[in-house]
């Protein structure tokens, strides 16, 4: 089965206090040199049938209307390499 990944991130101009909290915790944990952290969401979709143009168009529509709120978030749709999906089972 083919995997399509949708990454959703807050738009750059939107304040991300959760990312900031993670970033502030890093030096205390001994991780130096991270200037900024922004936290997002990753959706892994296992697609039945071929991931053709029509399927990707539907996934794009799904991301735009549901997975992301485009008032505050940007999203990217990526098709994952098939060998990666096969090797990843079971995780």
């Amino acid at each position: 089965m083919a995997r399509v990944v949708v990454d959703v991130m807050l738009k750059p101009e939107i304040l991300d206090p959760q990312g900031q909290a993670v970033q502030r915790a890093l030096p205390r944990l001994g991780f130096q040199g991270i200037a900024d952290v922004r936290q997002g969401k990753r959706f892994e979709l296992e697609v039945e049938g071929p991931v053709d143009e029509a399927a990707l168009a539907r996934i794009h529509e799904m991301a735009e209307t549901f997975l992301a709120n485009t008032v505050i978030e940007d999203f990217v749709v990526k098709v994952e390499e098939p060998d990666h999906a096969a090797a990843g089972e079971p995780k």
Binding site: L10, I14, L15, P17, Q18, A21, N69, V71, I72
Partner: peptide, 15 residues
């Protein structure tokens, strides 16, 4: 979320 009203709601700035 329905877009009947503009804008969006996010986590409180102080978490």
């Amino acid at each position: 979320e329905t877009h009947l009203l503009p804008g969006a709601m996010l986590r409180n700035n102080h978490l």
